[in-house]
């Protein structure tokens, strides 16, 4: 299990680096799916099979499907080039490398071994609907709000004016309509 952890960790890091460096958007998203699968293997080796399954189903399945559908809806390949100039990487890389070194130093190498027990779905369910039941209710409210909000934000405006200058300009639709009415 230890070897599996390190192999999956290496795959996760490599795939995540490829996500942020690919210039083809669909390739980047598929590498992100690989990264999420690798993290699911990490969860499994840590004795958390329930969240490993959820990682595959919800993250790699549902959320990434949403991303791929958005890419298809938006026709991103017709956009400006996705490639980032090499000079743009230098500043963030240096600063974030310092941050990572501090994080690793802060975590420290104190060699606590992880507990060799598997926490299965039953224990997770007991905790979820026992002490954390209020959090479950809040999560359901959050998801409902996100559903309604996404429906409202992405819906077409009532009367789209084709010749409106906002198609080339900066004005969002609702204030432009309000100004037209006054």
């Amino acid at each position: 299990m230890t070897a599996l952890f390190y192999i999956a960790a290496a795959v996760a890091v490599l795939a995540t680096v490829l996500v942020i460096t690919r210039s083809n958007l669909v390739h980047a998203l598929l590498y992100l799916v690989v990264s999420l699968f690798a993290v699911a293997v990490v969860f499994f080796t840590l004795g958390a099979p329930f969240v490993a399954a959820l990682e595959v189903i919800v993250y790699a399945g549902a959320i990434m499907m949403l991303f791929v559908f958005a890419v298809m809806l938006l026709n991103v390949s017709a956009d400006s080039p996705l490639r980032v100039p090499t000079s743009a990487w230098i500043g963030p890389l240096v600063l974030v490398a310092v941050l990572l070194a501090e994080l690793i130093y802060g975590i420290g190498l104190s060699d606590h071994a992880l507990r060799a027990v598997e926490v299965g779905p039953q224990q997770v369910g007991d905790a979820l609907f026992g002490p954390y039941v209020l959090g479950v209710e809040l999560a359901s409210m959050l998801l409902l709000a996100a559903l309604i909000g996404a429906r409202h934000i992405a819906s077409q405006p009532e009367s789209p004016a084709i010749e409106d200058p906002r198609l080339s300009g900066e004005e969002p639709d609702a204030p432009a309509d309000a100004e037209g009415a006054t």
Binding site: M1, T2, F5, Y6, A9, T45, L46, G47, I107, G108, L109, S110, D111, H112, A113, L114, R115, A116, V117, E118
Partner: peptide, 8 residues
């Protein structure tokens, strides 16, 4: 089962 350290 797991002998992975917390830090890793």
């Amino acid at each position: 089962m797991a002998a992975v350290s917390l830090d890793h």
